[in-house]
């Protein structure tokens, strides 16, 4: 019966529970440098979020351990390319017991839903999270239409 949505919900809950149990059981098993910590699809590029606030877009990118010198942004019309390199931060004179966070580089490109005014783009890096504020071009901005 379609009205019983919480049956479906409960079923998914059970699956989540199973996944959690497995994660706990195999938490340390088969961990390889650079492999994802979870039973999720492995990702070699950083995760991103994109929000549309009407007159501008906001993109958030996870870049832990990267400095602003390590990141490179390129924008053309509605095409955005993000490049980054993470250097290894192994300290001198230490022996390593476990290395999951190794050095890596990535390139990720996006086709944004509207053209961007590239002169007004702002990028901010806080706590390993890159936030891009991408103002839309005039033509792409939403307009209020008066009813006469």
């Amino acid at each position: 019966m379609w009205t019983r949505w919480n049956d479906v919900d409960r079923m998914f809950n059970a699956m989540d529970l199973l996944q959690h149990r497995l994660n706990r059981m195999y938490g340390d098993y088969g961990r390889w440098p650079g492999s994802a910590a979870d039973w999720n699809v492995e990702q070699s590029t950083p995760r991103t979020n994109l929000y549309d606030a009407g007159d501008h877009l906001t993109m958030k990118i996870e870049v832990p351990g990267m400095l602003k010198e390590d990141l490179n942004l390129k924008l053309q019309g509605n095409y955005l390319e993000v490049r980054g390199t993470r250097k290894s931060d192994t300290p001198e004179g230490y022996s390593s017991h476990r290395v999951e966070r190794g050095a890596a580089s990535f390139t990720r490109s996006f086709t944004l839903p509207s053209d961007i005014d590239s002169a007004k783009v702002e990028a901010k890096l806080t706590n390993g999270l890159l936030t891009l504020t991408l103002p839309k071009q005039e033509a792409a901005k939403p307009k209020q239409i008066e009813i006469s």
Partner: peptide, 29 residues
């Protein structure tokens, strides 16, 4: 239903020298 915030194990590096054990943990955001 309120969905609980998911719990994820962060990626960790563990180093050791004569004086200390050093942990590097990725926690973006």
């Amino acid at each position: 239903r309120n969905h609980d915030t998911p719990r994820i194990a962060p990626l960790v590096d563990i180093y050791e020298n004569n004086d200390e054990i050093l942990l590097h943990v990725d926690m973006p955001g």
